[in-house]
Nucleic acid binder design. Structure first.
Lengths: 301, 301
DNA sequence: AATATCAATGCGTTTTATGCATTAACTAAT
DNA sequence: ATTAGTTAATGCATAAAACGCATTGATATT
């Protein structure tokens, strides 16, 4: 069994397509095909079902795939750890985060981090709430920004970074646009624009409404925060969003208004696996995160 | 980076000797030497310090070694899992255990297990208490028999199998040899023969004595249970041991006498890692263990 | 000082992986 | 139904890599 075989195997397994896998691996199709056969012969098991020209994993192939993914994560981490050992400041931070932090919070932190460590590299992966948690537990990532923290996950180390206010974003000609604050209750009959099902931030909004006894009327859905801004901008509805995502510039023809009674907030934190240690550069970033937001808090108060 | 390099690397790292490693790997010394250099070039790091003709790991080499040990454990398990998938009854059980279970308990269970699954294979590793726990946590083993259970270890799944009596073993001409029971207190001034420091079973005895306010006078130490039996047999002292280790035959010129006030017992159980699933054959054995000792208990009562 | 042992390296040989061309099986479109 | 286009597997020649042997230079051992 050789490393190369595992690489080929995993590529074929994920793509379910030998030719594509070969192309992505920069080798001939025949090489991939042959190595897969070699691997199967050595393991004395069929890893793939060949149905006509389709290729997909057998049940045991799936198990093997999962195990190899784990092993490869360990090995990749080890390689990075070795590389970063001598020079952590030039290493790579792999981090996963929800869409709601993509626009403002994360870029801001990364910008500040790179002022101090200009050679640090980042690999970023936007993910849905549950995916994100799984990714950190399974070893695809060692760092995840998330809000709110999934407190019941026992395999994760969790650290609160900050609590942010959620404000209402209204079209500029909206009847409430001139108010200095709005109550969520006042939006009962408004059309909402929200992220699609599956995004936590949608759930935060829906839950806040449900606590007041109504279910928001979702008129439009948008795939990212900017899409929501556009929809509000076009006067198609109202939405709630974290204040930070509006800090740079308010979308054209909109106003943001603080929410009161109740104020809606969410807590944002960072999760890391309890089982694995952070790689050197990631440790730098982790410590930086805490320092950064602690200082922000000091500044506010 | 290829598996072959990792295998060579690990062999050299453990032996700190290229020629020996090469021999054990059944390849020429030059091959090993060259692969190590290749690996180091690819990682851009020295893994070994060459001092004259000595070879030993650099600090980062040690880290890399630990990571690779982990990865290789995952990979080896995966291979076994695949092999055992189709036919668990022919697979291998890797298990670690303390010396006190080596003589009677473990052989008995294995014998019974093999009556049902004659093709199952075993890899056995006797270990000291702490080593054993580490071995299961780190992934060198997925099963460990142990007594008492290390309840504070949160990474381990723990299951009690049975509780056993501990009895006194005396030379046949000992003044107490005719009694039907002895109190531990009566052995205050006796010379004890015990296992050396580091064995839990020694600690169990010493603690029992300390609870009665005395420290046993250790006259001789023996490396294994049979050595202790021999020492008692020769009249050099008394000892305590689990009753099961005497069940087959009493050593020549000795008598076993139940302990009362207090009776001394120890709980024996099995530990498995919470983080990893048991391999198919190991799962068979794990289930068998519980069934086996449950039935024993039923039988006793 | 002489000898033996060790890790590294140059070099020819063997093994292994690769790419190309082909085949056989399949899919989709006419 | 026929045809053209894909696809995965395989035979074969080529290229790459790992290997063993022999040697070197350094270091223990006596």
């Amino acid at each position: 069994m050789e490393f190369r075989q595992i690489r080929y195997f995993m590529e074929v397994a994920t793509r379910e397509h030998v030719t594509e896998a070969a192309h992505s691996l920069h080798v001939a199709q025949s090489s991939v095909s042959r190595q897969i056969v070699n691997l199967e012969n050595e393991l004395e098991v069929d890893l793939f079902i060949r149905e006509g020209r389709r290729v997909h994993l057998t049940p045991i192939g799936k198990i093997f795939f999962e195990r190899m993914k784990h092993a490869m994560n360990v090995i990749d981490d080890a390689r990075r750890e070795v590389k970063e050992y001598l020079d952590p400041e030039k290493g790579t931070i792999r981090i996963t985060f929800p869409i709601s932090l993509a626009a403002y919070t994360l870029p801001t932190v990364i910008y500040a981090f790179r002022l101090r460590y200009p050679e640090a590299k980042f690999q970023l992966k936007q993910a849905l709430y549950q995916e994100l948690i799984e990714g950190v537990i399974k070893g695809d990532f060692n760092l995840g920004l998330i809000g709110p923290l999934p407190l019941k996950e026992k395999k994760l180390q969790q650290k609160v970074l900050f609590t942010e206010n959620i404000v209402a974003l209204l079209p500029i000609h909206h009847r409430l646009a001139k108010e200095s604050s709005v109550k969520l209750q006042e939006l009962v009959d408004e059309p909402f624009v929200l992220l699609p099902e599956g995004f936590v931030f949608r759930d935060i909004v829906v839950n806040a409404c449900q606590n007041l006894g109504f279910i928001p009327n979702v008129a439009f859905e948008g795939d990212d925060i900017d899409a929501l801004k556009g929809l509000v901008s076009a006067g198609l509805g109202v939405t709630l969003m974290p204040e930070v995502t509006l800090v740079d510039s308010l979308p054209r023809s909109t106003v943001k208004i603080p929410l009161v009674e109740p104020s809606v907030t969410r807590t944002v934190g960072v999760i890391t696996p309890k089982e694995r240690a952070l790689l050197p550069t990631e440790k730098l970033f982790y410590d930086f995160l805490q320092e950064f937001f602690t200082r922000l808090d000091d500044f506010k108060s």
